[in-house]
Amino acid sequence: MSETAIQAAAETPPASPMRGYWRSVFARLGRDPITLCFAVVVLAIVLAALAAPLIAPFDPYQQSIIGRLKPPGWRGHPLGTDELGRDLLSRLLYGGRISLLMGLAPVLIATLIGGTLGMIGGFAGRLANTAIMRTMDVFYAFPSVLLAVAISGAMGGGIGNGILSLSLVFTPAMCRIAETASAQVKHLDYIEAARASGASAARILRHHVLGNVLGPVLIYASSLVSVSILLASGLSFLGLGVQPPEPDWGLMLSTLRQSLYVDPLGCALPGIAIFTTSVCFNLLSDGVRRAMDVRA
């Protein structure tokens, strides 16, 4: 009788279409003009970096002995030239590609590896937790910049090694965040309820732990993007990340620094680019997190 009651009720067609999670997220984003502004800026930066070969007015490697450190507008260079007479705008556009890559790739790698390990450690507890977290503590023992410098120094400069060393720097912190969050979630009623309804450990981890750990992890990851851009710039500045003549914001800052008194604007531009990118990334991620939070 009860079974037929459920079925009979199931016959009735649904009254309203499913609202859809992402549609409600975008609707909430639409009501947040400030976040939308940051989104536009971030989008512009990313698009400009992607489209650099198409929109750059000059070859970023083309040097000119006579055209060094020229002000904006000199012979068609919109932002002037750098200390080797290369077009600054073109180098900024190309440099954005490398800086964004160096900002996003290590965070992505660290989030995937550290987040997964931390979730497993926090949820499983005991031996798995000890093994994972004590290993992470070993990495924690080194100051992050020193660790990045040491790894890059030992393995040589270059973009690949820079990404690798920054990933290693971020993984323990990511792991710690995910571990703490899942250890908290683990003892909540709905995890027990999920187990009581027959969900396997893997399923609980995938659905209920991940869903609730994702929030703090993503917040932290988004704040790391700007740190990563800065650290990568720092590595390049020290000569351990991107190697000249590759254009990179950090590297440009490093080389233009010597011309501070001659061409303050040109010197400031890469710094402004780093600053704008990291601030916009941070504030955009804050806004997106607010819009994605269904727990209100």
Partner: peptide
């Protein structure tokens, strides 16, 4: 409240 997962 606590036995239902708040994100689903």
């Amino acid at each position: 409240m606590s036995a239902l997962d708040p994100v689903y």
